[in-house]
Amino acid sequence: IDVRFTVNGLDVTVRVRTEEIAERVKELAKNGVDWREIQRIAEELNK
């Protein structure tokens, strides 16, 4: 599942395995978490 969001004007796409992880990623993006941090968290959750 590809999750797309915009952080500080940057369009970011993170690929995740499940809808649940996708929701977590969207939540982080909404809360203004840095995209590199979101990427790292997504990689952890995908394991």
Rank of each mutant, 00 (worst) to 15 (best):
I1F: 13
I1G: 02
I1T: 04
I1E: 03
D2A: 04
D2Y: 08
D2S: 05
D2C: 10
D2R: 03
V3T: 02
V3P: 02
V3A: 02
V3E: 02
R4H: 15
R4E: 14
R4M: 13
R4Y: 09
R4D: 14
F5Q: 05
F5N: 03
F5L: 15
T6I: 13
T6G: 08
T6E: 14
T6Q: 15
T6Y: 05
V7D: 15
V7M: 06
V7W: 06
V7E: 15
V7S: 15
V7G: 09
V7I: 13
V7H: 11
V7P: 04
V7K: 07
V7N: 10
N8Y: 01
N8I: 03
N8G: 13
N8W: 00
N8D: 15
G9D: 11
G9S: 04
G9Q: 04
G9N: 06
G9A: 03
L10I: 15
L10F: 11
L10G: 06
L10P: 01
L10Y: 12
D11V: 13
D11L: 14
D11Q: 13
D11M: 12
V12P: 00
V12M: 12
V12E: 03
V12C: 06
V12N: 02
V12R: 04
V12Q: 06
T13N: 08
T13A: 07
T13H: 12
T13E: 09
T13L: 07
T13W: 02
T13P: 01
V14A: 02
V14D: 00
V14H: 01
V14M: 10
V14N: 00
V14I: 15
V14Q: 01
V14R: 00
R15S: 12
R15P: 05
R15V: 13
R15G: 05
R15T: 15
V16Q: 00
V16Y: 00
V16W: 00
V16D: 00
V16R: 00
R17D: 08
R17V: 14
R17Q: 13
T18H: 03
T18I: 02
T18E: 02
T18G: 04
T18Y: 03
T18R: 02
E19Y: 06
E19T: 11
E19H: 13
E20K: 12
E20P: 06
E20I: 09
E20H: 09
E20R: 08
I21V: 07
I21L: 06
I21P: 00
I21E: 06
I21D: 10
I21C: 03
A22S: 06
A22W: 03
A22F: 05
A22Y: 04
A22R: 05
A22E: 05
A22L: 05
E23W: 04
E23L: 12
E23P: 00
R24D: 02
R24K: 14
R24H: 12
R24E: 07
V25E: 00
V25I: 13
K26E: 07
K26V: 13
K26M: 13
K26L: 14
E27C: 06
E27I: 09
E27D: 12
E27Y: 04
L28D: 02
L28E: 03
L28F: 05
L28P: 00
L28W: 03
A29S: 06
A29T: 05
A29D: 03
A29L: 13
A29F: 15
K30R: 14
K30P: 01
K30C: 10
K30Q: 13
N31R: 10
N31T: 13
N31F: 07
N31A: 15
N31L: 12
N31P: 02
N31G: 09
G32W: 03
G32R: 05
G32S: 08
G32T: 05
G32V: 07
V33M: 12
V33R: 07
V33P: 02
V33N: 07
V33H: 09
V33W: 07
D34K: 06
D34M: 05
D34S: 11
D34W: 03
D34E: 11
D34N: 09
D34V: 02
D34P: 08
W35C: 05
W35R: 05
W35L: 15
W35P: 12
W35I: 15
W35G: 08
R36I: 14
R36F: 14
R36M: 15
R36G: 15
E37H: 03
E37I: 08
E37L: 05
I38E: 00
I38H: 00
Q39G: 08
Q39Y: 09
R40A: 13
R40S: 12
I41K: 04
I41N: 02
I41R: 05
I41F: 10
I41Y: 08
A42K: 01
A42Q: 01
A42W: 03
A42H: 01
A42D: 01
A42M: 08
E43P: 01
E43R: 06
E43C: 12
E43K: 10
E44R: 08
E44D: 12
E44H: 13
L45G: 04
L45E: 06
L45S: 05
N46F: 03
K47I: 14
K47M: 14
K47R: 13
K47W: 09
K47P: 04
